Amino acid sequence: MFSFLILITLGWIFNYAHRMAVSPLLPFIKADFHLSSAEAGLLMTALLLPYALVQVPAGYLGDRFGRKKLLVVSIFGYSISSAMLFFAGKYWEVILFRVLYGFFSGLYYAPATSLIAEAYGGRKGSALGVFMLGPPVGTGLVPLLVVPIALNLGWRYAFPGLALMSSTIGVLLALSLRFKERHRKARLSIEVGSVSLALANFLALMAFFGVLTFLVAFLTSYGMSIEEASALFSLLSVLGIAGSLLGGFSYDRLGRRALEIAFLLNALLIALLTLKPNPLVLIPLGVAFYSVGPMVTAHTAEVAGRENLGSVMGFVNMVGFFGATVGPYAVGLLIDHFGYQKAFLLIPAVYLLAWALIKLGD
């Protein structure tokens, strides 16, 4: 069971590596296509919108026809579509391939989290903490992989390289799924109790992706080199490994209160980083930033029923990624008009609104 959890987690790690590769490569891509910050933000929005829209269908299809099979389709689909960026010669072609990537990558989360939550029961928080290593490890690993390639060969070569690695995980996962999966009854419905959680997830992911998309550019605007800023970007994500594990562990013991604390910590730490950019703030921020994912996922599993677990997982993630879709473009637009500091100072307020929704939701 643990080896299967590791394979699913590796698939999620590369899911994030592909999607977040744009952030450290943003200076190269902006220069190549002469993009504004708002247009650069659309490179993230382009994948997040189809990713969000496919969440509920992916959860239902996984419940109905087999979650494991859908995971394999997702890995090969997102690997191939991301590799196609190598051939993009125009801005709209980059957008198109990112949209295709967003569709296939969106098939992964709901069946994977449903499978883990059902298998681990009362220990689902800790197991989902392992799975949610995907965001920090994938995001932290990707600059170390793609920036050297971009500096030596060009940014386009980074995506086929990532695709080769993720396709290998897809092959291993496919080989591990030779046994027949048990069929189950599936119900396409959403619990009322999941709505406030979904709205809080909307705000949290809007802030999360808004920060991650422009963090390297934010740091370089204060005089750091791109190498230094990329290293700090990776540090944030490496610390997020502890955050993800701690988040799952904390939820198993504190429940909803752990999520409330995480939202408040993120608001405070991002405000401190914005007012006085200090690399030391990234240490607690990396932990708090990535602790939210496993908590939201575990809490979602508690408000869902057995027959619609995938649908509810997909619904909460779908609404969250509508926020993620808005975040990069909105932050980019604010940066264009008001500068980095004023734009980033609005992000703590977003986390405080998410905290209020969870606090008042029950």
Rank of each mutant, 00 (worst) to 15 (best):
F179V: 12
R123M: 14
P294N: 08
V22I: 15
V296F: 15
L232Q: 03
F263P: 00
F2C: 00
G122M: 09
E181V: 01
G323D: 04
L280G: 00
L246F: 15
P111E: 08
L107M: 13
G305C: 04
P277F: 09
T325M: 14
I358T: 04
W355G: 02
L273A: 01
I169Y: 05
G125V: 10
G310W: 12
Y351T: 01
N278E: 13
P27I: 12
T325N: 04
I226H: 05
F76R: 08
F209Q: 07
L334T: 04
I95M: 12
G138M: 07
V211F: 04
R256M: 11
E307G: 00
R178W: 10
R64W: 10
G255A: 12
L47C: 13
L199Q: 09
L188M: 14
L275C: 01
L43I: 10
L85N: 11
L151M: 13
S230A: 15
A198D: 08
Q341H: 13
S250K: 02
A117T: 07
S74Q: 08
P136S: 09
L259H: 05
N152V: 11
R257S: 14
F289Q: 03
G323P: 06
G121W: 05
N266R: 13
L212R: 01
F33C: 04
T113W: 02
V22F: 13
P24F: 05
